[in-house]
């Protein structure tokens, strides 16, 4: 029996909350398959709007930019972030706590402020706006997440495992490949997926750092919404949200939120 059972009422409530969370998304997805532009019911199923996407140069190039920046962000943030968390794990040095504390402002300060500050600074020193500026910003936002996630995994790592393997006569390369790496790999993978998600879904930073014509998907979607929407936006939005949810499921596979497993 549950310690604090709310019986059927609790289940019903949970379902209502899930309905609230998913209803708009589902409606949007369904409407993206509706042939009518005016959301008439019943839905007349069609792939018309997805077809239209294929001919939309702006959306296609924005999608390419989004994926490109996300991949680069993942690579750079993973390498730099993992290196830093290794240093935090291996060494105790002066300034370590301060450096770890410095990871929180990028997460805690509203993106509006971080984004406008980047715009202002990059403009001022001549970096300017564009894809390169977005990459700079995205990596900076992803870094704290990577460091926090990999550090959590490293913290759970028991160095005695290595000693045990070595005591049984395993050479160092084998210890690393058979013991260390398999243990840490899920953490690294989760961190990389986090980085990808941070970049791929990032709107605010990209919005301030994009130049008209070269932007990412969220920015392009925002511009389209502001202009007055068409079911095409539904279609691309459905693709984007489906993709990022799949990504999160990937993260969840490797990273237990809230210490779920005992």
């Amino acid at each position: 029996m549950r310690a604090f059972s709310l019986g059927g009422l609790g289940r019903v409530y949970l379902v209502l909350v899930l309905l609230f969370l998913y209803c708009p998304i589902i409606v949007m997805a369904v409407m993206s398959f509706n042939e009518s532009q005016f959301y008439t019911l019943p839905v007349k199923w069609s792939f018309k709007w997805y077809g239209a996407l294929a001919g939309n140069e702006r959306i296609l190039s924005a999608a390419a930019n989004s994926v490109g920046i996300a991949v680069l962000t993942t690579l750079i943030a993973s390498v730099l972030g993992t290196a830093a968390s290794l240093a935090f794990f291996r060494y105790r040095f002066r300034g370590r706590e301060v450096m770890q504390l410095l990871l929180f402002p990028p997460i805690a300060i509203p993106w509006l402020i971080t984004g406008t500050a980047m715009l202002l600074f990059f403009f001022w020193i001549g970096i300017g706006r564009g894809l390169h500026a977005m990459l700079l910003g995205h990596v900076a936002l992803a870094l704290p997440y990577v460091i926090i996630v990999t550090s959590a995994r490293l913290k759970a790592y028991d160095p005695d495992l290595e000693l045990a393997a070595r005591s049984m006569g395993a050479p160092p390369w084998m210890v690393f490949r058979r013991v260390t790496l398999p243990f840490l790999a899920p953490g690294f993978l989760a961190a990389a997926l986090f980085a990808f998600a941070v970049s791929f879904d990032q709107f605010v930073i990209s919005y301030f750092l994009s130049v008209p014509g070269t932007s990412t998907l969220p920015v392009e979607i925002y511009t389209a919404i502001r202009k007055g929407f068409t079911p095409e936006i539904n279609a691309i939005s459905t693709i984007v949200i489906g993709f990022s949810m799949a990504l999160l499921l990937g993260v969840a596979r490797f990273y237990k939120f809230g210490g779920e497993r005992k």
Partner: peptide, 21 residues
């Protein structure tokens, strides 16, 4: 639990947009 936090990381802009409909 996964279902509840699934929207947590998914695209904020798109989720806001979905409310317009």
């Amino acid at each position: 639990f996964l279902l509840v936090i699934l929207p947590f990381w998914s695209n904020a802009l798109v989720r806001i947009f979905s409310w317009t409909m």
